[in-house]
Design a protein around this nucleic acid. Structure first.
Lengths: 160, 160
DNA sequence: CTCGATGCAAAATTTTTGCAGTCCC
DNA sequence: GGGACTGCAAAAATTTTGCATCGAG
């Protein structure tokens, strides 16, 4: 945790303002889902989120989680991370200023976020060359970390 | 179609040899599925492939298609292209020598393959810096082609 | 009050699997 | 002839949807 990142209370207010500005209602369930998402330090699935949200408000249903996820994504407060599994991952959009790529470890099955600032250049290049309006980009690396695995520490700490 | 690309007959033989070398059997269904895949000029889904394979051999079942896809992928004769939809795409692995990225057009909903040779450098960089064995990489750009759309020709020809 | 939001359960969708019969080698 | 392969249908697994009810504004 970074000491100078905005605290959850102020981000929660931002979320409420986002809902109101879109003409959506501020419900207990939506707040519980937001809190669950922001309390999660890692990537999470819809099902993970449901479990956590229910610890906060046990009336939260699966359907509501699935209906809240696009809203949270649109607000940019969470980010969808699709690494090609059957289900999608999400994560709280903590203050990352540069493009994030994912490293998916085939040994420990974890997803790590790494900076890939050159992707901003790449997006511009593609946009110019092909006359496109780039909407989003995705860069993923699937890899083995054999040495680490051998040492029993495939599980890397926060920063890769 | 490129005139000097290997013809389907010789690639089919390669596939048969691959099956044999793996101790797998050369069945009519597998050959029909192979032919259907290689006869498809574009990206296709499992369901597309089933339809086409059934035109060749109507005994082909959905289960066999799903069971054949990993084999074809492992043989490198087809390539999996996952762009984050509910279902996966595949395509015949025609002679591409450099890394291929995908451009997904939000207007015409098509997938275009483009060369991204710098990804080979990127893979090496990641491998070195993080002590990983890179297994695969994925680079995708989602975009609008508004100008083209306005002109009614969002549908770009073969080469982007 | 009003109408958006919710919970529940059923549906939808793609992919996988169990099993009895088939056919490649 | 033996065992890998196949088709069929049921199962899995995640996400979506219809509908009656609830509750935010």
């Amino acid at each position: 945790m970074d000491a100078n990142e905005p605290n959850i209370e102020s981000i929660r207010e931002t979320f409420k303002e986002f809902l109101t500005s879109k003409g959506l209602r501020v419900t207990n369930q939506r707040i519980a889902i937001f809190d669950a998402a922001y309390g999660h330090p890692d990537h999470f699935t819809a099902e993970d989120l449901l479990d956590r949200a229910r610890e906060i408000d046990d009336s939260v249903s699966r359907a509501t989680v699935y209906r809240a996820l696009p809203i949270l994504t649109e607000s940019s407060l969470i980010r969808e991370v699709d690494v090609g599994r059957d289900y999608k991952f999400y994560m709280a959009n903590k203050n990352a200023t540069t493009f994030q790529a994912q490293v998916i470890c085939l040994d420990c099955d974890k997803i790590f976020e790494i900076d890939a600032p050159f992707m901003e250049w790449y997006g511009k290049t593609v946009a110019d060359k092909l006359a496109l309006n780039v909407e989003s980009q995705r860069l993923q690396v699937t890899a083995h970390c054999n040495e680490l695995k051998a040492a029993g520490i495939c599980q890397r700490g926060g920063k890769v």
